[in-house]
Design a protein around this nucleic acid. Structure first.
Lengths: 331, 331
DNA sequence: TTGTAGGCGTTATCAA
DNA sequence: TTGATAACGCCTACAA
C-alpha cells in the first residue's frame, strides 16, 4: 500500500506510463548518458501531464544533499529602497532558473544553523562575512557569493564600494565650487557600519583636495531636527555650503528642514543624496544623487549564483558595482 | 558505511550520547506522550551542542509531508512601499516561529506547480485567489491565508478594502470643502486592478454626496506629464479643486508637476495620497494621505498562519485591515 | 534501452 | 522509559 498521502509520485507516473520509476526519473532529468526511446519518452511525458506530477522538492533535496533554495542574508538595517530592489530583482532572476529565494535578517538566525538546516544550493550575503564561515559553507558544497561593502576584492565577491560613494559626493560638491562640506548622518544606529564607510570616503576626498574634513551632523527623519542641523551648517564660520546626505531619505528630510528655516538648495546649501530613489526627481529642488545601479549589480550576482549552482563555474572574477552620478538641481 | 557526506545526523548524536537515534528524536521534538529521564535528556542535548547538530529540513519535510516553508504569492505589480513592508514584516514574524518565507510573483510560476513541489506549511496570497485553488491546497493540508482586496469577507481572508481607500480620500476632500474631484491614475498598467477598485470607491463616494464623478487623468511618474494633468484639472469648468492620487508616488509626481506650472497645494489643487510613504512628511507641502496600517494587518496575517501551522486553529474570523487618514497640509 | 535495489535523515509505530 | 524498524519520494550505480 503506497497511497496514503494524496501526492502524485514518480511511481504513479511510471505505472500510468507502463514503465519503471527509474525511466521516469531519466526522462524528467534527461540524463545525458542514457538513451531513451522516443516512444517511452512521450509516454512518460503524457503521464506526467495527465497526472499533474510535480517532483517533491524535499525528496530531491534529501537525496541530492542540497535543496533548490538560495539563502540571502541581509544586514539588519531598515530596508530602504536599495535592499528592497535587490531582493526583488534577485528573486525574479533566480526563480527563472528554478531556484527559490529565502531571505533572512542577520540578527535573528545564526548563519550556520540555517544553512545546515536548509542545505541551500547557494548562500548570498549582503555584507562581508567571516572567512571561516565561508570556508565551512564551501566545504559543504554550497556556493557562496557575497556583496561586500568594504574594499575587499576577492573571487565570488561583488563589492559595492561604500567609500567611493562618499568620495563621489564630495567630488560633485567640489566640482560645483563648494569648499566647506557637511555630512548628514542618519539617525538610525543600525546604519552605523555603512555610515562609517561612506563617511570615510568623504573624509578622504576632502583631505585629498586640501579641504577641511566634513562637518558631520545627525539628520534624523524629522523636520525640526533637520532644520536645526541646516541652520548650524549655514551659520558656521566659515559656512558649510554643500552637504552629502547619507541617502536620499536623509536628503529629503534635510531639504524639508531647510525649507522651514528659509534656506534654499543649492543656493544656501547644496545637497546630494545616495540611492536615486524613485521620488528623487520630485524633491524640491529635484535631488542630485548617486545611483548604485543595483539592477546591474544584481544581474551579475544572480548570474554568479546560477552558473555556480548549475555547475559551469563562471570566471568568478571579483566585481565592483558601477556607481553613477545623477545630476539634478539640488547640488 | 554511513558517513559519505560531512553532515552531522541524529544518528551521530545518538552514538555520541550513547542512546538510540529514536531517543534523540524524542528529546528534540519533546514528544508529549513520551517520558524521558532527565539524565538521558541532558546527555542528548549535550551531544547536540557538542556536535553542532541541525536537523535536516529536507528529511523532515519528506517524512512529515510538509516543509517549514511559507509561500507568499504577490500580484505582479511594481513593488511599492506597501508590498515591501508586507514582505519584510511577514518574513520577520514568520522566522520567529521557525518558518521560512519564499516569495513569488504571480505571473512566473503557476501557483499549483509550486505548492505541490514545495509542500509548504502555508500559502499566503496577496490577492483574491480562485476558490478551487484554495480547495486544492486545503485538501493537501496546507493552510491558506489570503489578503484580498475586494469586498470578499470570508474566513482566513484578510481584506484590505481598496474601495474604502478611494472613499476615504473623497471624504477628506469633501470635508475640506471640495466639490469637484479629480483622480490621478498611475501610468503602470499592471496596477489596473487596484486602480479600478480604488476608483470605484471614489466614484461611489462622489455619487453618495451628490457630486459629479471624479475627473480621471493619468499621472505617470514624469513631471511634464503631471504638469499637463494639473493644468487640465485647474482649467476645467468648473475647476477641479481636489485630487485623489492613486498612491503617494503619484502624489509626489503631481505636486512636482503643479509646482512647475505655478499651481500650489492645497490652494489651487488639494492632493491626497495613499500609503503614508516614509517620505510623505517631506513633500512640499507635507502630504495628506491614507495609511493602510500594514504592520497591524501583517501582524494578524502572521498570527493566522502561525496558529494554523502550529495546530491551534485560531478563530479564523474574517479580518479587515484598518485604514486611517493622516492629515498633513496638502489636502 | 530498461529495470532492480539501496539509501539520503527523519518521524512514528510497535515491541521490549 | 527506550530501541528496532518501516516508510516518506527520489536518484543512481549496477544488473538484465
Amino acid at each position: 500500500m503506497a497511497r496514503r498521502t494524496g501526492r502524485v509520485t514518480a511511481t504513479d507516473v511510471a505505472k500510468e506510463a507502463g514503465v519503471s520509476q527509474t525511466t521516469v526519473s531519466y526522462v524528467l532529468n534527461d540524463v545525458s548518458h542514457q538513451k531513451i526511446s522516443d516512444g517511452t519518452r512521450r509516454k512518460v511525458l503524457e503521464a506526467v501531464a495527465k497526472l499533474g506530477y510535480e517532483p517533491s522538492a524535499a525528496a530531491r533535496a534529501l537525496r541530492l544533499g542540497r535543496s533548490d533554495l538560495v539563502l540571502l542574508f541581509l544586514p539588519d538595517v531598515p530596508v530602504g529602497g536599495t535592499l528592497t530592489a535587490l531582493v526583488e530583482l534577485l528573486g525574479d532572476e533566480l526563480e527563472r532558473h528554478g531556484l527559490n529565494l529565502v531571505t533572512r535578517r542577520e540578527r535573528h538566525a545564526p548563519l550556520k544553523a540555517l544553512w545546515r538546516e536548509l542545505m541551500p544550493a547557494a548562500v548570498m550575503t549582503a555584507f562581508d562575512v567571516a572567512d571561516d564561515d565561508v570556508a565551512g559553507m564551501r566545504a559543504a558544497g554550497i556556493h557562496v557569493v557575497s556583496a561586500g561593502m568594504g574594499p575587499v576584492v576577492a573571487p565570488g565577491v561583488l563589492t559595492v564600494p561604500q567609500t567611493v560613494i562618499g568620495t563621489m559626493q564630495v567630488d560633485r560638491l567640489a566640482a560645483t565650487g563648494h569648499t566647506r562640506i557637511g555630512y548628514a548622518a542618519p539617525g538610525d544606529p543600525r546604519l552605523r557600519d555603512f555610515l562609517d564607510l561612506r563617511l570615510d570616503g568623504a573624509r578622504t576626498a576632502c583631505k585629498e583636495r586640501g579641504l577641511e574634513p566634513p562637518v558631520v551632523l545627525e539628520v534624523p527623519l524629522d523636520i525640526s531636527a533637520a532644520a536645526a542641523a541646516a541652520e548650524q551648517w549655514h551659520s558656521a564660520v566659515p559656512a558649510v555650503t554643500g552637504v552629502c546626505a547619507y541617502n536620499d531619505e536623509t536628503a529629503f528630510a534635510l531639504l524639508a528642514g531647510m525649507r522651514r528655516v528659509g534656506l534654499a538648495a543649492p543656493g544656501d546649501l547644496a545637497v546630494i543624496g545616495v540611492d536615486n530613489d524613485k521620488l528623487a526627481p520630485f524633491a524640491v529642488p529635484p535631488l542630485t544623487t548617486i545611483d548604485n545601479n543595483l539592477d546591474v549589480a544584481v544581474g551579475r550576482l544572480a548570474r554568479m549564483i546560477v552558473s555556480g549552482v548549475t555547475g559551469q563555474s563562471q570566471p568568478q572574477t571579483p566585481q565592483v558595482s558601477p556607481l553613477t552620478l545623477v545630476v539634478r538641481e539640488s547640488a
